[in-house]
Amino acid sequence: MPEKLNIEFNRETLDLVNKIIKRYPEGRQKSALLPVLHIAQAENHGWLSSETMEYVASLLDIQPIEVFEVASFYSMFNLQPVGNCVIEVCQTGPCMLKGSEEILAHFENRLGIKAGETTADGKFTIKTVECLAACGNAPVIQVGTEYHENLTTQKADDLLEKWQAENKTSHTNPYL
């Protein structure tokens, strides 16, 4: 373990982690990996640095490679830095039928970036994602743990304006 880590959970977050670890049988604390990675990612501005993953490994008493192996498998975990507010636009069939391409293009035009990129001021990242299980209200986007459904370009504009104004971050502890 490195001498001094930049990331360290506060007391409350550590209590939550310990509460989660108790949900599994003795010796099965690795089961807490996904929940703890979600928390760690939120605490580390929305992405998992090597340092963050090493910290998670130390919390769960497992090897850093085990953490990396898992983090790289799941698409919700970002292994590169992202903007403050990550806009995830669903692109799968049912959303496509209802105009998700137009919504994506609209966000791209408004922010001057392509999917997968972050604005120069570090405020926004656009990411395309697969079906969010809300197809009846297509098109759908996700920001942090919020869903925004039945999206129109007008609604997208309203949201962007609101997020700009409040300096929106999508990186909040998902358990709270």
């Binding site: 949900r23 089961s31 996904l34 929940p35 990675l37 979600h38 498998f73 799941y74 698409s75 919700m76 975990f77 994602v129 697969e130 998902p174």
Partner: peptide, 12 residues
Amino acid sequence: LDLYCQPGAGAY
């Protein structure tokens, strides 16, 4: 009985 929720992380 104890009952808990467990999150996935984006994997169909």
